[in-house]
């Protein structure tokens, strides 16, 4: 077990280095964008004098290196800083929306992952049957349409025509849990449709691959039940690729849902990121991107650990 602990610590250390590199890249990317926060905030009503005054107030007239160092120093003390555009603390701006994004991701994940695994297992067992084909056609169709289109279709039928669900998911901090579930159902469904195919196909492929191996045949020959063959013999060995694809999709749920957020008016942080980039609001962009990077790093770490634990051979590397 110490091997695992060491690996985790090592990977977390590397993760910190990655975050530092990411922060430099983000800072310079935003610097490279045309225009700065002062120009973007004032927009069409900017005049040279007001831009200069605003720049001075926001310390944008200091050299980029100085600004980055200041930001890094504050960050090292756990201070995300304040938004350039509206002067509010970044932590306050983000926390609420981050919570909403995680809620939606979790909601979609709870529906999608078991559903996809189940469909994948069944499809592998009933390979080339009508069910297999139907499941593949349905999930692949769903993933082939752009998300916003799926979202509009859901709204048209479930909201506008049938009136089962609200067309916008405007949840607020005071919304209670049941209402939250009800209001987030359509976006969660749209996201489910977007990721199910990927997980299901991977599960199916991994299992079918294993089913052809001699040890599965052996298990069948010795009279193990179908369920036991799948759950005990096959699934364990298929875990590594499946966990990887699940994790990849969960990370996507946290980071890539801007379009679904916009269509359903869901107050997650995707839109905050888009708005902040367009206003060159570096502290907010940094904070969100670091959270996104961290999500990827931690989820990947988790996937690797599961792979290693499920395959003891990897624990005793040469």
């Amino acid at each position: 077990m110490t091997g695992i602990a060491r690996l985790v610590l090592q990977r977390l250390g590397l993760g910190l280095v990655t975050l530092l590199i990411v922060s430099v890249l983000i800072f310079w990317s935003v610097e490279l964008l045309p225009g700065d926060a002062a120009q973007e905030i004032l927009g069409q009503s900017a005049t040279p004098e007001t831009v200069a005054a605003l720049r001075h107030q926001l310390n944008l007239d200091q050299p980029p290196m100085t600004r980055y160092t200041h930001w890094l120093q504050a960050m090292a003390h756990g201070d995300f800083g304040t938004s350039i555009a509206n002067g509010l603390p970044v932590s306050k701006l983000i926390s609420e929306r981050l919570g909403n994004t995680l809620f939606l991701a979790a909601f979609a994940g709870i529906i999608a992952v078991p559903l996809a695994l189940m469909l994948g297992i069944l499809a592998a067992l009933l390979r080339n049957s009508l069910f297999d084909r139907a499941a593949s056609i349905f999930t692949l169709t769903a993933i082939s349409f752009p998300e916003f289109f799926v979202a509009y279709i859901l709204i048209l039928f479930l909201s506008v025509k049938l009136g089962l669900f609200p067309s916008i998911s405007n949840i607020t901090p005071s919304t209670d849990f049941a209402e939250r579930i009800y209001r987030s159902f359509l976006p969660a469904l749209a996201l489910t449709l977007a990721i199910t195919a990927h997980i299901m196909r991977m599960t199916r492929a991994a299992l079918i691959n294993l089913f052809s191996l001699p040890y599965i045949e052996m298990a069948r020959l010795k009279g193990a039940s179908q369920g036991r063959v799948v759950m005990v013999h096959a699934l364990r060995n298929a875990l590594a690729p499946i966990v990887n694809v699940v994790v990849l999709n969960l990370a996507y749920l946290v980071t890539g849902v801007v379009i679904v957020e916009v269509v359903f008016v869901y107050p997650g942080f995707g839109r905050l990121l888009v708005d902040s980039v367009s206003k060159r609001d570096v502290p907010v962009v940094q904070a969100i991107c670091l959270i996104i990077s961290m999500t990827y790093i931690l989820l990947n770490l988790f996937a690797d650990i599961v792979s290693i634990v499920s395959n003891p051979r990897l624990m005793h590397a040469k």
Partner: peptide, 19 residues
């Protein structure tokens, strides 16, 4: 005041009585 940037979402919101 609810910000609804997407024009289709805005139309749906008023047609379904959400706003």
């Amino acid at each position: 005041i609810i910000g609804i940037d997407d024009v289709a979402a805005r139309m749906n919101a008023v047609l379904t009585g959400e706003v």
